[in-house]
Write a protein that binds this DNA or RNA. Structure first.
Lengths: 209, 209
DNA sequence: GAAGAATGTTGACGTTGTCAACACTTTCTG
DNA sequence: CAGAAAGTGTTGACAACGTCAACATTCTTC
């Protein structure tokens, strides 16, 4: 009797997680337009409407994928921040690179997180708010250390967010005309000399090692 | 006989343009997912597959919409540039604001231009390349005037593009968590003090009037 | 005015998301 | 331990969608 010992396996063994995983694979392989409940079912050896026991509809499945993506995303940002030196310049660069890297390595997640239009009635993403909060907090800490100029930290955070997000987004459309063929130099150009114009001094020489 | 005098009206009066126009209305009203050939037909008092006399398929219609959007977009950028004072700071700020404004006022166009995945075989957008070229040219001129630091103008252009594009993109998802609720201040924050770190001096005082 | 091209319509097909009805499995309750 | 209840998956069906072939209409050209 496998009650709660090994797996909460009913029929499939938890299908909910498998649905999300499989969806990501499919999107990564053939794009979001190729994501169909029937194809998911086929791959999982399950019928086409099995998903309806776990999600209200397709949009709800996508919303769950998005939310899970924001959790991973926030973790990645946090890890980058904690892994970098304590000075603001190091941290913000590490986070920016982590952002772009996430967009690059988790294309499917990123596409759903930012590409899918939000339902009017749906609640705002909690995990997304957390991710943004980490960035804003980093900026506030930079201000406390005197490495970032004083001012509205929310505005400053949004500015950095926009720069990094734009880099990530345009990178995904690399085929486009003269558009952004990714280069981490873009981040450096934007952040290094005078990070989006928010660093206090032009060439910050942090006191900490 | 209305030969080429008034309208090239055959049955509908030119349907091709009407299809594009109507598509934009529909997207603006109900989002891109609600864009269906049948609905377009209904609105135009035309059958569901009439569009196939003007476009190979739905993707081709979207591509045409995108291309037309990039033309308008390039025009808007150019107009902003020419309408601003000759110094780099004025120009780049005007262009940035024009960019965000375009994204805001032409949501439907913007959604198709940047949101729709490009077909593998389809040719790159000529109008898109032109739009980006205007930006890069502006930066080169700024370098010649000594108002922008020397360096790879392509990289600098991409950096500005990313900042502005990110601002525009996130603005569209305004409902989101702590995400960007548009403020032209974001642009100013990014561009004004030290435009994405690309201006030669911190507070440029252009020689020209 | 007739031929032919351009343009629009209709019928049909396969695919999709979704729902109701049913079937099976697990857990709960006495 | 038996039966009820809840959880989970399947099947049949439907409307809507993109698309194509066949047909109908209108315009242009000679």
């Amino acid at each position: 009797m496998t009650r709660k010992k090994r797996k909460p396996a009913y029929h499939h063994g938890n299908l909910r997680a498998a649905l999300i995983e499989c969806s990501l694979d499919l999107i990564q392989e053939k794009g979001i337009r190729a994501l169909t409940l029937r194809e998911i079912g086929n791959r999982l050896g399950v019928s086409r409407s099995a998903a309806y026991r776990h999600f209200a509809d397709k949009a709800a499945l996508l919303a769950a994928i998005s939310e899970a993506g924001f959790v991973e995303f926030g973790d990645a940002l946090e890890a980058a921040k904690l892994g970098a030196a304590a000075d603001f310049a190091s941290r913000i660069e590490a986070m920016g690179i982590a952002y772009v890297r996430f967009a690059n390595q988790h294309r499917a997640h990123f596409e759903v997180m930012f590409g899918e239009p939000r339902q009017p009635g749906s609640p705002p993403s909690e995990a997304g708010a957390r991710a943004f909060g980490i960035l804003e907090q980093t900026i506030r800490e930079g201000q406390q250390r005197g490495e970032v100029r004083a001012g509205d930290s929310l505005l400053l955070a949004r500015t950095v967010w926009a720069l990094v997000h734009g880099t990530s987004t345009l990178r995904l459309d690399a085929e486009r005309p003269g558009f952004v063929q990714f280069s981490s130099e873009i981040l450096r150009t934007g952040l290094q000399v005078s990070p989006v114009g928010i660093v206090a001094s032009e060439t910050p020489s942090p006191a900490a090692a």
